[in-house]
Nucleic acid binder design. Structure first.
Lengths: 348, 348
DNA sequence: CCGGGGTGAGATAACGTTATCCCGAAAGGT
DNA sequence: ACCTTTCGGGATAACGTTATCTCACCCCGG
């Protein structure tokens, strides 16, 4: 019976004891021996192949239950070549990220498991995470790309990596991506404020080295130019720091011709703006919806992204590419929606 | 040269073409052939074993670069027995979850990869996720347990699963866990409000079927009893729905002897309370710190959990258990801290 | 001059699956 | 009665790694 040398702890526990003291999990061989059938038959039963007789199947099922057998996906995946797993490399797992939620949901519907990790807005960490997922041979990766240098992706893509970028494109690389219509969003915000009588509109945004921040700031400048509005002291972009926001607001709201309305570049900036500035004589339209939007008085008017659409489109693109590696690259732009809640409808 | 039958697309791309049209990734065998060495030598170089000559090592490195070889972790893990991977099954990936962030950070420091998935507060989904991680043979799992029936974990634990529960224990099972000191938190909140002159203190909490909600509500009742305060209309627990919160507040704040202070059971409830109730004559202490806390006027006084400690302790426990499966079970309680910011210091 | 350590590198066997091939037996037709 | 067909099920070879064993070789002391 005891095939291996060490016969300590043979008191009929399920798992035998390994050399390292860890209990060895039962394998298909053990199940086959227990059921008195061939290894292959156990495999057939596990993958419920119809060609196995009902009587043998029962014997195998009983053996599986008796031994608490659980298949080892590592071996399955190695043999099969595919893992049924998608990776999600996002900036911060533990922040509110409705797109990630939609990605999980859509993947689940397609019977794919999503395993996620944070890149913490760190290019080196992003690379570590993505390469790790590649070595694990995930079927595909959903990536919120950081920074400008994604050269490390080239060999992976050449080797067959299926990748879809969300929220921003992978600069310099021709890969599938799903992004919001930032330009239309800014245009909608600008037009909305203009329609409510505002002529002096300021913009407070994120660091323009970030793709979306750059796109939104550029769109804002174009809107102002088209409206024939001067930009002096009206555009403030840079890293998100309370002091900078305070200074930007002071610059925009003081002086001979102060702003009467503000557009913010993302949800975090909306928070900082609202936090650092109490009197509500100024109209505000925020980019990105958030839980906070309905906490304020008046509630915050926002340009909301269609997170659900972004997430499910990302999974669709990824599945299509997994099915056909050579299909043409798609870059999808998802419409945004302006939700008027009060803060954007205040008069000048 | 062309070993396999189909010689289409042999235009000297790195990966040969598989029967399914997908490019096959190069393996150690390919590297060995390219470098003109034995398979084992490539393995030695990849795991930078010192016993390989510098000249051969260079040859192998060149071959790896030429072929863009990337080791397949599935095979490594299968062979090695361990995966160097921890799973995190949390209620909602894409919510703010400082504990998860601390878990990732601590794991990274220990050279472990954390892959996370959401359980969406759904017991069946939790089971699917955890069992999937088990079949993938993750070295350990960090779990935010949901519900009361975790029987499905028993065979996994018997088979050697390393598990640590965070935020709440796994009811009925003797596994490692890290939880905040909910009782001390409620006591601190109660004492703080009492010290500021409050005698009528109300509690609005989550559904008591949730462990933490039950623990906090019970602690509150005990505090009130000790203070000799009546509980009529002062304790409101149940699912988080705006209508319920509104009703609870109305009940607590109206009548002949209204509450002058409120303790909330978690951050979401704090939000709902603040949202649904405008006049600030009532003192508030919230359980859980959050971004919103410093958005309000006055800022929200909170009982803050030590997320960093919870996360790193969880990883410590997990690593210790992985190192020694048979070590005794530890249940760690992490202290909480009351942060006075204004809302809890208002007089009755 | 030869035997004994060290040392670098190759053949080969796992790890736990699934897929290919093949065979034995039962069933059906002439 | 015998041949053919079908069908359930078993042996065996992958999948891409790492570990064990073996061996050839070189250097050095006896």
């Amino acid at each position: 019976m005891a095939k291996n040398g060490d016969h300590e702890n043979d008191g009929h526990m399920h798992g035998e004891v390994n050399k390292r003291g860890r209990t060895r999990r039962p394998t298909m061989v053990d199940v086959a021996r227990e059921a008195g059938v061939a290894l292959r038959t156990v495999s057939r039963v596990v993958n419920d192949d119809a060609t196995v007789g009902s009587e043998l199947a029962k014997r195998v099922h009983d053996a599986i239950a008796a031994l608490d057998y659980r298949p080892d996906e590592r071996a399955r995946h190695l043999r099969l070549g595919v893992t049924g797993t998608l990776g999600a490399a996002v900036r911060q797992l533990s922040h509110v990220n409705p797109v990630l939620r939609a990605v999980e949901r859509a993947a689940r519907a397609a019977d794919l498991m999503v395993l996620a990790a944070s890149t913490e807005d760190d290019e080196r960490l992003e690379r570590r995470v993505v390469e790790s997922m590649c070595r694990r041979r995930f079927d595909g990766i959903v990536l919120e790309p950081i920074g400008a240098d994604h050269g490390y992706l080239l060999p992976e893509l050449a080797a067959g990596l299926c990748l879809v970028a969300v929220d921003r494109p992978v600069l310099g690389l021709d890969v599938d991506c799903v992004i919001s219509d930032n330009v239309a969003g800014i245009q909608a915000a600008y037009a909305h404020l203009a329609a409510h009588g505002h002529r002096r509109i300021a913009y407070v945004g994120d660091d323009e080295r970030i793709f979306t921040a750059q796109e939104r700031a550029t769109a804002f400048r174009a809107c102002a130019a088209e409206a024939g509005a001067a930009l002096d002291g009206m555009v403030h972009t840079g890293p998100i720091e309370p002091a900078r926001i305070v200074h930007a607001l002071a610059t925009a709201l003081e002086g001979p011709d102060p702003a009467t309305a503000i557009i913010t570049g993302n949800a975090t900036i909306s928070v900082e703006v609202v936090r650092s500035f109490d009197d509500r004589r100024v109209a505000i339209v925020g980019f990105d919806d958030s839980e906070l939007a309905t906490l304020l008085r008046p509630d915050l008017t926002v340009v909301a992204q269609d997170d659900q659409a972004i997430g499910s489109t990302a999974i669709d693109l990824l599945r299509a590419r997994i099915a056909d590696h050579n299909r043409p690259v798609h870059r999808v732009t998802v419409p945004v929606e302006l939700l008027a809640r009060g803060s954007g409808e205040q008069p000048p």
